[in-house]
């Protein structure tokens, strides 16, 4: 099989995941896009491992490790998202701007006042 097929598919999947990470607003959808990017990397690892006929099969071993790390990442990420949702009442990543650099605290047109969110978070 031509090596370009899996390599191009992995590159396109990575770009799709990149778009999702940048464009999505819900934190869980961002996590899904991260999973897509990790899977693109896995496909590359497997394809190059099969191509190189590595005696240690480093690509496949690293793919298994990546899958395990992705499982850990999704567990921790979901725990953080659920905690944020419990404290703030939202899991939209662009509403969580406590550490943004702008001086004015005025919320955007759709936002609830940030002072309330902070009070809710510290309560």
């Amino acid at each position: 099989m031509h090596l370009a097929y899996p390599a191009v598919l992995a590159a396109l999947l990575f770009s799709v995941g990149l778009y999702g990470v940048l464009a999505r607003r819900n934190a869980i959808l961002v996590l899904m896009s991260v999973e897509l990017m990790l899977n693109a990397v896995n496909l590359n690892l497997v394809a190059f491992d099969v191509w190189l006929r590595d005696t240690l099969h480093a690509g496949q071993a690293l793919t298994l490790f990546t899958i395990a790390i992705a499982a850990a990442e999704i567990g921790i990420g979901l725990a953080i998202v659920l905690m944020v949702y419990r404290n703030r009442g939202t899991s939209d990543v662009d509403r969580l701007r406590d550490t943004s650099e702008t001086d004015d605290e005025t919320p955007t047109a759709d936002g609830t006042p940030s002072a309330d969110e902070k009070a809710e978070a510290t309560a």
């Binding site: 990575f14 770009s15 799709v16 990149l18 778009y19 940048l22 464009a23 999505r24 607003r25 819900n26 959808l29 939209d92 990543v93 662009d94 759709d110």
Partner: peptide
Amino acid sequence: DADSGNRPVALAVALAA
């Protein structure tokens, strides 16, 4: 509101990548 406001920028970055 599933997509945030920086969708065009995200599309441009993803297409370039």
